[in-house]
Amino acid sequence: MTRDIVWQKSSFSSGGDSADCVELAAVDAVVLLRESDAPSRVLSANPAELAAFVRHLRREAE
């Protein structure tokens, strides 16, 4: 049985149906990430790994 993945577009996307956005989906205990302009490339992480990645990006942006 195949499960449909429901992707959620980031609120920081450039709006509308733009191809410049990041999408997230949760499947069981895994978070999936992809860019809308390259939907076949999917990264997976557990919630703790994703939180660490976001913290790293925020520090780099400061």
Score class of each variant (00 low, 15 high):
residue 23 E to C: 09
residue 21 C to N: 07
residue 23 E to N: 01
residue 38 A to G: 02
residue 34 R to K: 06
residue 38 A to F: 06
residue 35 E to A: 04
residue 35 E to M: 05
residue 6 V to E: 11
residue 47 P to G: 05
residue 11 S to P: 11
residue 24 L to K: 03
residue 3 R to N: 15
residue 10 S to A: 10
residue 15 G to H: 01
residue 31 V to M: 09
residue 62 E to Y: 00
residue 13 S to H: 04
residue 35 E to P: 01
residue 22 V to I: 15
residue 39 P to G: 06
residue 30 V to H: 08
residue 9 K to Y: 00
residue 7 W to K: 06
residue 49 E to M: 08
residue 46 N to S: 07
residue 14 S to W: 07
residue 60 E to C: 06
residue 16 G to A: 03
residue 54 V to Q: 03
residue 14 S to H: 12
residue 7 W to S: 03
residue 8 Q to E: 12
residue 13 S to Y: 01
residue 19 A to Q: 10
residue 62 E to H: 05
residue 52 A to F: 01
residue 58 R to H: 08
residue 5 I to D: 10
residue 35 E to N: 12
residue 5 I to V: 15
residue 52 A to V: 01
residue 39 P to F: 04
residue 26 A to Q: 14
residue 4 D to N: 12
residue 34 R to W: 12
residue 2 T to S: 13
residue 12 F to D: 00
residue 5 I to R: 14
residue 18 S to D: 08
residue 61 A to H: 09
residue 55 R to L: 07
residue 12 F to Q: 05
residue 19 A to E: 13
residue 20 D to G: 09
residue 27 V to E: 07
residue 13 S to Q: 04
residue 50 L to I: 03
residue 17 D to F: 15
residue 34 R to Q: 09
residue 14 S to D: 13
residue 13 S to R: 05
residue 55 R to K: 10
residue 14 S to K: 07
residue 41 R to E: 10
residue 3 R to M: 15
residue 28 D to R: 09
residue 27 V to F: 10
residue 55 R to N: 14
residue 62 E to G: 13
residue 9 K to H: 00
residue 18 S to N: 15
residue 54 V to N: 03
residue 2 T to K: 14
residue 26 A to M: 12
residue 53 F to N: 03
residue 29 A to E: 11
residue 50 L to Q: 04
residue 53 F to A: 13
residue 57 L to Q: 11
residue 43 L to S: 06
residue 54 V to A: 10
residue 44 S to G: 15
residue 35 E to V: 02
residue 9 K to I: 06
residue 53 F to M: 06
residue 44 S to E: 14
residue 62 E to V: 02
residue 17 D to W: 08
residue 49 E to Q: 14
residue 40 S to E: 14
residue 31 V to R: 04
residue 28 D to T: 09
residue 49 E to F: 00
residue 1 M to I: 11
residue 59 R to F: 02
residue 30 V to I: 13
residue 12 F to K: 01
residue 42 V to Y: 02
